[in-house]
Design a protein around this nucleic acid. Structure first.
Lengths: 333, 333
DNA sequence: TTGAAAGCGATACCAA
DNA sequence: TTGGTATCGCTTTCAA
C-alpha cells in the first residue's frame, strides 16, 4: 500500500503538499496540484483512515445500540438514523445488545477508546448509574427509550399518553376486561417505555372505574412468537380478558395469528391494539388498530440531534425533541 | 484523555511495559503488572483505538453491504453475520446501498482506506468489472447475491432450483397460468438471484409444456407495497395469471393483502408462492407457501467465511459454501 | 524482565 | 506557495 511519502516522492514534492491536495487546502498551485493528482492515480493511493483519525482525533463514525436487528421497529429506527448520518458523512457502527447488560457496557467502551464520535441508544439495559460514567467520554443521546435520571439530549414520545389513548379506545368501544403486555424485561428491570405506557393504561382504567387486574398483565412480550404465547395463556385463565393492549404490532400479529389457530374471532372474542404502525399492521386479518409512532422520523431526528451535539459540543443548549403519537383505528378493535 | 505515557509516568515505568500489560504479554512481573493496573485505573485510561489500528494495521471491523435495512430478509442476514463477527471480536459497519451504484462504489473505498478488514456483499449494484478492482485491496466475500465472473469466496444457494421447485409445485397443483415477479432492477441490470430463479421458473414451465408469457413477468417487485401493485396490474390484464411466484414473502404478503381488499380469494382466485420463509409467511391469511432460505444461517456462514479469509489470508483454498433450499407448503397454493 | 527508540501514515505549524 | 518536522498514541524490536 502506497503512503503519502510515496506519492510525494513520485511527484517530486513534499508530504505537506500532498496532504494539502488531499484535503483541498488553498495555496497550492494548479501545476503542483496536477502533479500530485497524477502521482496519486499512478500509485492508486488512498489515505489511511486510521492515520487520519489519529491525527485529527475524529472518526466520522457513530455507534447505534439496538437490542435486536430482526425487530422491525429497530430496523426502521436504524434506517432513519442512517439516512441522516450518511448525509453528514458519518459511518454507522451497529451494536446489537441482545438485551444484555454486559454487551451494552462493553459497547460503551467504544467511546472511551475513541472508536466513535458519539452514540445513540435506542434501548437501555443497565441502571443509569452505570451508563452515566460514560457520558463524560463523549456525546451519548437517547432515542425511543429514556430514563428519568438521564440528563442527556433525547428524542422521545409521550408513551404514557400512548398507553392512555389505546386503553381509552378499548373502553369507548365497550371493552372492560383489558389486558396489558409489557415488553422484554431482564431481572426486575422494566423499560421506562413499557412502564410509562402501563401508567397510561392504569390511568384510563381508573378514570372509567375499571380495576387493574394483575393476572391480566403479561411480561416479556416482544415479538410474534411471544404474542402467540400470550393468547395461549389467556385461554387458560378462568376469567380471561376480552381485549389486549400490546407493545408492538409484532406482538399484536402473534396474538391475532394464534387466535385464528384457536378458532377465536378478532375482535368479537378478543380485541387487540398494537403499537408502532409497522407494515404488518395492515397485513393481518383483521388489520391492527395501533398507536402510530413515526419510526423513521424518530431515527432521523435522533441522527440530526447527535450530529448537532457532535459538531457544536460546546453549546449545551441542544433541545430535547418530543414527537407525537396517535391512534389509527383498524378492524382489530 | 490520558495516554499510555501518562500511565507510564504515574506507574514509574516505561511505555513499553504499560503496552505489554494492556496486551497481556508475557514477561511482565506481577509486581509491575499491578502497578500498571493501578495507574490505569487511577487515570481511567483506555487505549486509543486509532493509534492501535494504525500501529497494528488491523481494524477488527468488517463492513456489511445491504440494500435496505428495513427489508426483513437483510435484517436476518445481518443478524446472522453479527453473531459470528461478534464472537470473533469484530465490529460491524453497516453500509446501506439503497440499490445505488454510486453508494456501493463509495463504500468499497472503506477497504482502500483500511477502515475495515473485510467486506461482505449481500447484493451487487455495479457490474463486476468495477467491483473487481477492489478485490485486491482486501478480502471481499459474497453472501446471497452472486456473479458468474466473481472469483471470490461466497455463500450461496441454488436459486435456479428454488425457482424450479416453486413453479413445479404450482403446476402439480393444477395451475397453468403462472406469473413471475423479478426483484428490484436498476437500468437493465437484473440481479443474478432473480435471473437464476427465473431460469428455474422457465425450465419448469417448458418441462410441462407451458409457455412463458412476457406479460406475466413483473419487474421491480421487492416489498409489500410493490406486491399490492402487482395484484392491481394483474387485475387489468385481459388474460390474467391464476398463480404468482414472488421473490420474497413480503411481496407475497402484499399480493395476498391486496387480493383480500379486491375481494379475491387466495388460492382459489389467485395462488401465491413466497420466498425466504420469513415470520410473516405464517401471519397472512392464508399463510404463505414459500421457498425456505435459512436466513440467519446464511449470514452466519458468511461471517465465518470472512473471518477465515481474514485470519489466514495466505490460503486461497477457502471453500465456497452452498446451502440448500426447500419448499414449505401452506395454504396460499 | 524492563526500557529506549523507531516506526505506523497523515496533518499542520513555522520558516523560507 | 512550498517544505521540514513535530506530533497524534500505541506497538515492537533490540539491547541491556
Amino acid at each position: 500500500m502506497p503512503t503519502i511519502a510515496d506519492v510525494a516522492k513520485l511527484a517530486g514534492l513534499s508530504r505537506a503538499t500532498v496532504s494539502r491536495v488531499i484535503n483541498n487546502h488553498p495555496y497550492v498551485s494548479e501545476e503542483k496540484k496536477k502533479l500530485v493528482r497524477e502521482a496519486m492515480d499512478a500509485l492508486n493511493f488512498y489515505p489511511n483512515s486510521s492515520a487520519q483519525k489519529l491525527r485529527s482525533q475524529k472518526t466520522e463514525t457513530i455507534a447505534v445500540f439496538v437490542p435486536l436487528l430482526t425487530n422491525p421497529f429497530f430496523a426502521y429506527l436504524l434506517e432513519g438514523i442512517d439516512t441522516v448520518a450518511h448525509d453528514y458523512g458519518y459511518q454507522l457502527l451497529v451494536c446489537q445488545t441482545r438485551y444484555d447488560k454486559e454487551k451494552e457496557l462493553n459497547f460503551l467502551r467504544l467511546l472511551k477508546t475513541k472508536q466513535v464520535d458519539g452514540i445513540i441508544l435506542t434501548s437501555i439495559e443497565n441502571n443509569w448509574e452505570k451508563i452515566k460514567n460514560f457520558t463524560e467520554c463523549g456525546p451519548i443521546i437517547l432515542c425511543n427509550e429514556y430514563d428519568d435520571q438521564a440528563k442527556i439530549p433525547s428524542v422521545r414520545l409521550d408513551q404514557e399518553y400512548g398507553g392512555y389513548i389505546g386503553t381509552r379506545h378499548f373502553i369507548e368501544k365497550g371493552y372492560t376486561k383489558i389486558a396489558y403486555c409489557r415488553g422484554f424485561c431482564r431481572d426486575q428491570f422494566v423499560s421506562r417505555i413499557s412502564a410509562e405506557r402501563e401508567v397510561g393504561y392504569k390511568r384510563a382504567l381508573s378514570e372509567f372505574g375499571l380495576k387493574n387486574r394483575k393476572e391480566w398483565v403479561f411480561e416479556n412480550v416482544s415479538d410474534v412468537e411471544s404474542g402467540r404465547q400470550v393468547l395461549r395463556k389467556i385461554l387458560l385463565l378462568k376469567d380471561p380478558p376480552t381485549a389486549v393492549f400490546t407493545g408492538s404490532d409484532q406482538v399484536a400479529a402473534g396474538i391475532i395469528n394464534e387466535a385464528a389457530t384457536c378458532g377465536l374471532r378478532v375482535p368479537e372474542d378478543i380485541a387487540v391494539i398494537g403499537f408502532d404502525n409497522q407494515p404488518i399492521a395492515e397485513i393481518t386479518v383483521p388489520p391492527i388498530t395501533t398507536i402510530m409512532q413515526p419510526m423513521q422520523e424518530i431515527g432521523q431526528q435522533a441522527g440530526k440531534l447527535l450530529m448537532d451535539v457532535i459538531e457544536k459540543k460546546d453549546q449545551k443548549d441542544v433541545e430535547d425533541i418530543l414527537l407525537s403519537l396517535h391512534l389509527i383505528e383498524r378492524a382489530s378493535t
